[in-house]
Structures are given as C-alpha cells and as structure tokens.
Design a protein around this nucleic acid. Sequence first.
DNA 1: CATGAAAATCAATGCGA
DNA 2: TCGCATTGATTTTCATG
Lengths: 156, 156
Amino acid sequence: MDDIDRIIIDRLQEDGALTYAEIGAAAGLSPSAVNDRLKRLRAEGVIRRMTAEIDPAAIGLGLLAFVLVAVNEPESEVRFREAMKATPEVLECHHLTGDFSYLLKLRLRDTAHLEHFLMDRLKPLSGIVRTHTLIALSSVKETHILSASLSGAVHA
Amino acid sequence: MDDIDRIIIDRLQEDGALTYAEIGAAAGLSPSAVNDRLKRLRAEGVIRRMTAEIDPAAIGLGLLAFVLVAVNEPESEVRFREAMKATPEVLECHHLTGDFSYLLKLRLRDTAHLEHFLMDRLKPLSGIVRTHTLIALSSVKETHILSASLSGAVHA
DNA sequence: CATGAAAATCAATGCGA
DNA sequence: TCGCATTGATTTTCATG
C-alpha cells in the first residue's frame, strides 16, 4: 500500500469504468502494471468489489430515514441482527455506544412504507425497548468515497 | 423502467465487473440489448456511476462515527453545509427532522482523529448549538445496494 | 437483435533495480 | 527477487444497420 495504490484507489472510486490505460496515466504506470496492482488489491480485500451507484429516487426509494433502536435482552440481539441483515430496506445497521444500541439507515418508498417497517418488521421483534426515528429532509452530501490520502502513514 | 431494468440494476450493484453477456444471460437479453439499456439507464441518471467499494480499515480508516448536530442560526447553515461538503472525513451529511438538524457520518483513523474533527473542524463553525457523537462498535450490515424490486410499481 | 471493427483485458515473457 | 513494461491472443465494448 503505497502512494501509487492510493492514486489507483482514489481514481477507481471516482470512476469505476476507467481503463487500465487511463488509471496508468494518472499513476505513472503501464496498463499491465495497473492490472497487477488491481489484482493484488482485490486479493488483499482492499477493493471489495466494483459496483453501480444507483439513484434511489429513480427506483422509487425517495425516503431516507434513520432509526435509533434500544435493545435490552442480549438473547434478542442475535435475532434482531439476523432480521436486519435479511431486510432489504435496511442498508446499514451499526452497533453503537450510548443509550441506543443500534442505528439503522433505511431507504423506503414513502412514509407508509416506513410505518409498515416500524410496525410490522421492527416492533414484533422481542427485546426492543425504544426506538427513535429521524427522517432526512435532504442530503447535503452522500458519498462512500474514502480519501485514501486521509489514512496518512499506513501499514502493510 | 421494467423488470428487466431491475434485474440489470440488481446484478450490476452486486458485481459491477459483469460483462454485457453475463448480464444478458441473467436478464434474458443479448449483449447489445444490455448495452442499449445501460446507455439509457446512465443517460436517465438511474445509474450514476460505476465505483470501487473499498475496505475502510484497509486504508487506515477503522473508526466509524455519527454526529448529530444542532445548528440554530439560519445564516450559519450555508457555511456549515459547505464545510461538510469540503471535509473528506464526512461521508454523509443529511438535513433532518427533530431537535438535531443534521446527521453526519464520518470515517476516521482513530479517536484522536475524531477529537480533531470535533474540536478543530466542527466547533469553530458558528451557529452550532449542540452535538451528540455516536461511535460504532461494529457494523452488522453496511451496504448501498438498493433492491430494485422493493420499488414495487414504478414510474417512467 | 446481429454484426464487426475498435478497444480493453490479462497472462506470458523479458528486463532492470 | 520484485515490480514494471512490452507483446499479443482473447474477450469485451459499442456503433451501425
């Protein structure tokens, strides 16, 4: 993981359709050297996969919501986690510090869809003490691009 | 936007390196028909871009945190938004309902990096009344894959 | 959707630090 | 030995009809 890797990672996050030649031009490398590095970065798990970024509204998922969830019984947590993993509306589920144990990020069609999720999916799960729902009015910024140069001095 | 589009979108989110032939096999289409549809989906903005999904820990960004921010002075909001957009640690910034006006999603190296962000980046901004920081202990689920079939009956 | 020319991928090989 | 460049066969893309 050197500066050249970081350039490759940055470029490929911005535009995953770049050719090896284009990446190479940015990184000062031949196309085959880019190929070699990409193979390694994939094998190491640094690059998890290539993926398409979709406009949620374009496929009818115009509502973004976050739900804080307090779960108290430890034996309920396993089932809760499995349910979240299996629910496509749940994009993210993080285990947190603080009085709420989990934060969910949801993409939904509308408020009726949200209500259905809260009432029919979440509430029936045992051990849920309390929830707090936050609805996004707009998104100032939403990316998953990680600035490889932020990592500073790095490992391996 | 029909069922075939939805299959294409689902497949391409799972694996953006699929060839037109592979997508076509899943969707019952010839490679050139897949090409035609992809061109349209890109032109319509349904597919925003192709991108690489990176392991945050692999590039030294092992800490995930969320920060709820209460901003009161309306004229401060513009500057606040611009600052968030310009800060690479901030992956997301959503305008919310509720007593906190914004939710930030951050990727950071460690708690020292978080402290630096809170003290030197966030606090100096005017109009910030209150913040509440949530640290992720682990992530049960984290994806940005939208289930195209969730959209149900759809438009255009 | 079929076709085919142009482009990209990717493995093999050789070279140089 | 490790990483890069060159080469060329194969595969993929993508405009045309």
